[in-house]
Design a protein around this nucleic acid. Structure first.
Length: 940
RNA sequence: GCAGGGAUGGCUGAGGUGGUCAAAGGCGCCGGGCUUAAGAUCCGGUCCCAUAUGGGUUCGUGGGUUCGUAUCCCACUCCCUGCACCA
C-alpha cells in the first residue's frame, strides 16, 4: 500500500463539516450546554505554533463535549484593533483597515486548514462598527454611573508608541508592546473605576478555577492591604496630611513625615521659602525619570526637608516634614509617616539624613528597649516607650487596633483598606481603536454622544504619521453639540484595545444581534465560559479587565453573571532548541549552530527556548500541515506534553507521530478483513474496549489531553495487536472496536476519524454523532481482564528468566514448569494483606501469625522464616489490583492451564507444565521462589 | 527583596496521599521476525553486575524522620514566571 492510497483528504472533510453546519451552536433545550473558548487572536498575517497549540487544545475539548452530548458554543473571532496595524500603516502607507482585513483573511484560511470546529457564523471582529458601537454604548452607560470619568493626572506615557498606557501595561518599567521607556506625564485622560470592584475581584478568585499562579498574580496586582489612615496636621497652617500605614502599631516611633515630591502639599509648603530649590530639584528629577530608571535607582534614597513640622496626632509632638524620592504619589495617600526603627526604607533615609530613630516595639517579649538600632526591626513586636498610658506590652493586631481606636476617638484617623490596583486608564492617543463617544462643548462641557448617534465611526480618510490622525481630521473633530447645537469638538482619543477583549466572549453568545449588545436570556444561558484557554501573558491585563467588565455590565442589569470564566487553562509555550552558551548564560540565534560562542569563544550547547523570530527557532505550521497534514500536527502537539507544560518541538517526534497516523489509516481495512471466528479472547477485547473508553473519559474530564491521546492513538493499537496475537479474529467484534475507537480518534485527529467512520459504512459524520456509552464491565469480563493480566505478567517474567536459565542449560530451553505457590503462602499472603490494610503494625504481625492456623502446620518454622524474608517486603509491593486478585477467587492453575499453548508458542518451547507445588517433585529448591500470582519458573 | 512553579534514566515525560519504583509512555538506540531489498509494521532489549526469577547504585546537593522514602521534614544550589522603594 502506498502512502497516497491511505492519505486523508482533510480539506474534503472540512468542507463537509462546514456544509452541514454541525458546528453552529444551538440551544436545543434538552442537552446541557458547554462554552469552550480560546483567547481570540490579534490578526497578524500568520498563524504561529502558539496559536496551533492553543486551538488544538480547545478544539479537543469542544469536540469531546459535543461527543458527550453537550450543546457546545465554540466560537472564533479577531481582536482586530491595535497598534501593529496602525504602525504598519505608518510604515507602509496603507490603511490599517486594509491591512487588518487582509491579515484576517489570510490567518482565517490557515486556521480553517487545521479543521477546528468553530462556529464561524459568530465571528466577532473588534474593528467592526457593529461591535465597537457597544463599547461606546457601555462607555456612556459607565459615564452615567460614574464608572468612567475624565481626570487630569500624572499618567504613563510611552514616547515611541505616542500614547498613554495603563499601569497593567507597564512591564518592568517599559511598554508592554514596544519595550520602550515609559515616562510620567500630566494629562487629561479617561479612567474606569476598577478599584470599585477590587474586593469583589479578590473574593471571586476563590470561586473560580484559575491556575494558582494566575490567581496569585491577580491578588498581587489588586494588592489589598489593611491598615489605617492617619491625619497629621501641619504646624502653623493647620493643613492636614493624610498618611496610609499598615503598621499603626508603630505610630509612636514616627519621627518624620515623608511626602512624595509630586504631593500637592509639597509645593505649597515650600513655596517662597529657602527649601523650594531643593524640592524643585527632586521634583524635576523624579518626574522626568522613566519608570525604568526609577527601578534602577531604587536603592538610592534621596530627599529634602520641606522646612515645616507636623503635629503627631496622639502625642502632639512636632516632627519634621520631608519629601523623598521613594514615596509614590499614586499609592495610598502619597504620604507616609516615617518610622525608621521599624521600616527599612525609613531607616535608610533617616540614617542618611541624620534623623532621629525611635524604638516603639521590642521584638522579644519583656526585653528592655536598649541599645542603638543597627537596622530596622520590621517584625511584629511588643509596644514599648509609649508616651501614653495603656499601650506598652500590646502586640501585633492588638497593638494596631488599640492605636486605631485612640485615633478614631480623636477623629485623627481610621481603619482603612488600601488597594494597589488603580483606575484603568483607557484612553489612547491612537487611531486604530474605538473612538471615545464624547463631545466637548464650550457651553455644556463634556457631553456623551446620544445612543441614537452611535456608533461614532472611525473616519477612513485620515493621515498617518503626524500625531494623532483623529485630531487632524477636521470632519471628524468638528461636530454640533448634541445638547445645545453649537459648534463643538469631538474627543479624539480612542479606547484601549483591552476594552474589546473585555466582553467579546459575551458577544459571541449572541453575535448577530443588531438591536442589543446581546440578549440577556441568551447570554445568561451560555455564560460563563466553562473552559477558557490561552496564554499566561494575560494574567494581569486581559483577565482582570474582563472580570471587571463582566461585573460592571452585571451591575448595569445586562446579565446576571458574576465571573466570566469558570476554568482557565494556560497552555505552555512551544519551544525549540537554540544555541546556548553555558558560560555567558545566553541563548543565541540558530545562525550560531556549529560556531563558537561569539562572546567568550567557548563551545555552544543546545537548549530549549521559546520559539521566536529573533532566535530563528520557529517552525511554520503551514509547512508542517502541508507535509504531514493537520491531524498529525495536532496529534503531536497534544501528545508531546501536557497542555500546561512547556513543550519542545521535535521534528523526529513529529515524524514518529506521522508514522502512527499512517498505521492508523490502515487499520480499518485490516480489521474489516477479519474472519468471523469466535475465540475465548473475544471477551477480553470486548472488556478492554469498555475499559479504554472509560479511561479516556476520565482523562478528558480532567483535561489530561496527553493521556487521552495516548489511549486513543497508542494503547488501543497495542490492545488490538494483543488481541490478534492471542488468536482473535472476529469481524463483528472488530466493527465494534472500530466504532468505539473512532469516537476517541475524533477528538484529536478528526479527519482521520471521519475516514474510519465512513469505512464502517456510516453516511453520517462522526463529528456530529453523540457517543452512546457502552454497558458497564461485567464480573465475567472483569475476571477475564484480570486473568489475562496475571498471565501477561507471568509471561513477561518467564521471558526474563529464560534468557538467564539458558546460560546454565546446555543450549535452548525446551520445557517450562510453572509451579503455583503452595496453599499456605496464599493463606499467609491474605492474612498479611488484611492485617496491614486494617492498619496493623507489620512488626507485630509475627505474634498474630504464631496464633493462626498456619502455626499448626508441620512446616511452621519455614513459614515464619518465609514471612520475614520474603513475604513482608512483598506485601507492600503488591499493588491494589494484585491484592484483590490474591484475596479473590483467581485460580492460577486454571488460568495458566487454559493458556498453556499460547505460553508455549510465545516462549518457543516444546512443553509447558503447570503444576501446583503440593504435587511437585522438585529437587532443586527453586520452587521456593513461588509466590501467589507468581509461580516458580523452572526451565529444562 | 517578595510571591508562584520547577530540578526524575541519552532526550522527553508520568508518578509525588511514603511501600505497586530500576521508576509508565514516547523519542532515540540495539537485536529479531516479515521483505528480493528499503521503508512501514510486528516481537524483544535498552543504569551496572549476576553461574535461574537475585544483588548494587540511581529521581538537583547535604542532612533528618521511618522497618522502608523519587514521594514527608529542614537547609542549600540552580532554573523559570510574575511583582518590585506599595508605606
Amino acid at each position: 500500500m502506498t502512502e497516497q492510497d491511505i492519505s486523508v483528504d482533510e480539506v474534503y472533510w472540512q468542507k463537509k463539516w462546514s456544509d452541514s453546519k454541525i458546528f453552529e451552536a444551538k440551544i436545543s433545550g434538552e442537552k446541557p450546554q458547554f462554552y469552550c473558548l480560546e483567547m481570540y487572536p490579534y490578526p497578524s498575517g500568520k498563524m504561529h505554533m502558539g496559536h496551533v497549540r492553543n486551538y488544538s487544545i480547545g478544539d479537543a475539548v469542544a469536540r469531546y463535549k459535543r461527543m458527550m452530548g453537550f450543546d457546545v458554543l465554540y466560537p472564533m473571532g479577531f481582536d482586530s484593533f491595535g497598534m501593529p496595524a496602525e504602525n504598519a500603516a505608518i510604515k507602509e502607507g496603507r490603511h490599517p483597515y486594509d491591512i487588518t482585513e487582509m491579515n484576517m483573511a489570510s490567518i482565517t484560511k490557515q486556521i480553517k486548514r487545521m479543521g477546528f470546529s468553530y462556529d464561524w457564523t459568530r465571528l466577532v471582529k473588534s474593528h467592526d462598527p457593529n461591535y465597537y458601537k457597544w463599547n461606546q454604548w457601555f462607555f456612556t452607560k459607565f459615564m452615567e454611573n460614574g464608572l468612567a470619568y475624565q481626570e487630569f493626572a500624572p499618567v504613563n506615557w510611552c514616547g515611541s508608541c505616542n500614547t498613554v498606557l495603563a499601569n497593567e501595561q507597564i512591564k518592568a518599567g517599559r511598554c508592554w508592546r514596544c519595550n520602550g521607556p515609559v515616562v510620567q506625564k500630566e494629562m487629561n485622560q479617561w479612567f474606569l473605576d476598577t478599584p470599585k470592584y477590587a474586593q469583589e475581584l479578590v473574593d471571586g478568585l476563590d470561586d473560580i478555577d484559575f491556575p494558582e499562579n494566575v490567581a496569585a498574580m491577580q491578588k498581587d496586582w489588586i494588592g489589598r492591604s489593611e491598615g489605617a489612615e492617619i491625619i497629621f496636621t501641619v504646624e502653623g497652617s493647620g493643613e492636614e496630611i493624610k498618611v496610609f500605614t499598615t503598621r499603626p502599631d508603630t505610630l509612636f516611633g514616627a519621627t518624620f513625615i515623608t511626602l512624595a515630591p509630586e504631593h500637592e502639599l509639597s509645593k505649597i509648603l515650600v513655596e517662597g521659602t529657602e527649601f523650594e530649590t531643593n524640592w524643585q530639584e527632586l521634583y524635576d528629577e523624579v518626574s522626568i525619570m522613566t519608570e525604568f530608571d526609577r527601578i534602577k535607582n531604587m536603592n538610592k534614597k534621596k530627599g529634602a526637608p520641606l522646612g515645616k513640622n507636623a503635629i503627631h496626632p496622639l502625642t502632639g509632638e512636632k516632627i519634621p516634614i520631608w519629601t523623598g524620592n521613594f514615596v509614590i504619589a499614586s499609592y495610598g495617600t502619597g504620604a507616609v509617616m516615617a518610622v525608621p526603627a521599624h521600616d527599612e526604607r525609613d531607616f535608610d533615609f533617616a540614617s542618611k539624613y541624620g534623623i532621629n530613630i525611635k524604638r516603639a516595639l521590642v521584638i522579644e517579649e519583656n526585653t528592655l528597649p536598649e541599645g542603638e538600632m543597627k537596622k530596622a526591626e520590621t517584625d511584629f513586636g511588643w509596644m514599648v516607650n509609649s508616651p501614653l498610658e495603656g499601650f506598652d506590652g500590646l502586640y501585633g493586631e492588638d497593638a494596631k487596633s488599640a492605636v486605631i481606636q485612640a485615633l478614631e476617638k480623636d477623629g485623627k484617623g481610621n481603619q482603612t483598606i488600601n488597594w494597589k490596583i488603580r483606575p484603568w486608564l483607557v484612553s489612547r492617543q491612537r487611531y486604530w481603536g474605538t473612538p471615545i463617544p464624547v463631545i466637548h462643548c464650550s457651553k455644556c462641557g463634556v457631553v456623551p454622544v446620544p445612543e441614537d448617534q452611535l456608533p461614532v465611526e472611525l473616519p477612513r480618510n485620515v493621515t498617518f504619521g503626524e500625531g494623532n490622525p483623529l485630531a487632524n481630521c477636521e470632519e471628524f473633530v468638528n461636530v454640533e453639540c448634541p445638547k445645545c447645537g453649537i459648534q463643538a469638538k469631538r474627543e479624539t482619543d480612542t479606547m484601549d484595545t483591552f476594552v474589546d477583549s473585555s466582553w467579546y466572549f459575551m458577544r459571541f453568545t449572541d453575535a448577530q444581534n443588531n438591536s442589543q449588545c446581546f440578549s440577556e436570556d441568551v447570554v445568561n444561558h451560555w455564560m460563563n465560559v466553562d473552559f477558557y484557554c490561552g496564554g499566561i501573558e494575560h494574567a494581569q491585563m486581559h483577565l482582570i479587565y474582563a472580570r471587571f467588565w463582566t461585573k460592571a455590565l452585571r451591575d448595569l442589569g445586562l446579565h446576571s453573571i458574576d465571573e466570566p470564566f469558570n476554568q482557565l487553562l494556560c497552555q505552555g509555550m512551544v519551544n525549540k532548541q537554540a544555541p546556548w552558551c553555558e558560560v555567558c548564560s545566553i541563548t543565541l540565534s540558530v545562525d550560531h549552530i556549529g560556531d563558537p560562542c561569539p562572546h567568550c569563544g567557548g563551545e555552544l550547547g543546545l537548549r530549549s527556548a521559546k520559539m521566536s523570530k529573533s532566535l530563528g527557532n520557529t517552525v511554520s505550521p503551514e509547512d508542517m500541515i502541508e507535509k504531514f497534514g493537520a491531524d498529525t500536527v495536532r496529534l503531536f502537539i497534544l501528545f508531546a506534553a501536557n497542555p500546561t507544560a512547556g513543550m519542545d518541538w521535535s521534528d523526529t517526534a513529529l515524524e514518529a507521530n506521522y508514522r502512527v497516523m499512517l498505521q492508523l489509516m490502515a487499520i480499518p481495512d485490516q480489521i474489516l478483513s477479519w474472519g468471523n471466528q469466535q475465540t475465548s479472547i473475544d471477551t477480553w477485547l470486548e472488556a478492554r474496549i469498555k475499559q479504554r473508553m472509560e479511561e479516556f473519559q476520565i482523562s478528558m474530564d480532567k483535561y489530561d489531553l496527553r493521556r487521552a491521546v495516548e489511549i486513543s492513538h497508542y494503547e488501543l493499537i497495542k490492545d488490538m495487536n494483543w488481541y490478534i496475537r492471542r488468536g482473535g479474529n472476529n469481524g463483528d467484534l472488530g466493527k465494534q472496536l472500530l466504532s468505539s475507537w473512532s469516537h476517541l480518534l475524533s477528538i484529536s485527529t478528526p479527519h482521520l476519524a471521519e475516514e474510519w467512520w465512513r469505512a464502517l459504512g456510516n453516511q453520517t459524520l462522526i463529528a456530529d454523532t453523540v457517543y452512546s456509552p457502552l454497558e458497564k464491565i461485567t464480573t465475567t469480563e472483569q475476571s477475564v481482564l484480570d486473568e489475562e493480566y496475571v498471565m501477561r505478567n507471568i509471561l513477561e517474567n518467564a521471558r526474563k528468566v529464560k534468557s538467564i536459565a539458558e546460560r546454565h542449560l546446555d543450549g535452548a530451553a525446551k520445557k517450562l514448569t510453572l509451579t503455583i505457590s503452595p496453599e499456605w503462602k496464599k493463606k499467609l499472603a491474605i492474612m498479611a494483606i488484611e492485617y496491614v490494610s486494617d492498619g496493623g503494625n507489620v512488626k507485630a504481625f509475627m505474634s498474630q501469625l504464631k496464633e493462626s492456623e498456619l502455626s499448626n502446620l508441620e512446616n511452621s518454622g519455614e513459614i515464619y522464616a518465609f514471612w520475614g524474608k520474603k513475604m513482608l517486603p512483598q506485601v507492600f509491593k503488591w499493588d491494589d489490583k494484585s491484592k484483590l486478585l490474591i484475596c479473590g477467587r483467581t485460580d492460577e492453575l486454571k488460568l495458566l492451564s487454559e493458556r498453556k499453548s499460547f505460553l508455549m508458542s510465545e516462549l518457543d518451547l516444546d512443553e509447558v507444565v503447570i503444576i501446583s507445588s503440593e504435587d511437585s517433585l522438585d529437587d532443586t529448591g527453586r520452587i521456593n521462589s513461588a509466590m501467589p500470582l507468581s509461580p516458580a519458573i523452572i526451565y529444562a
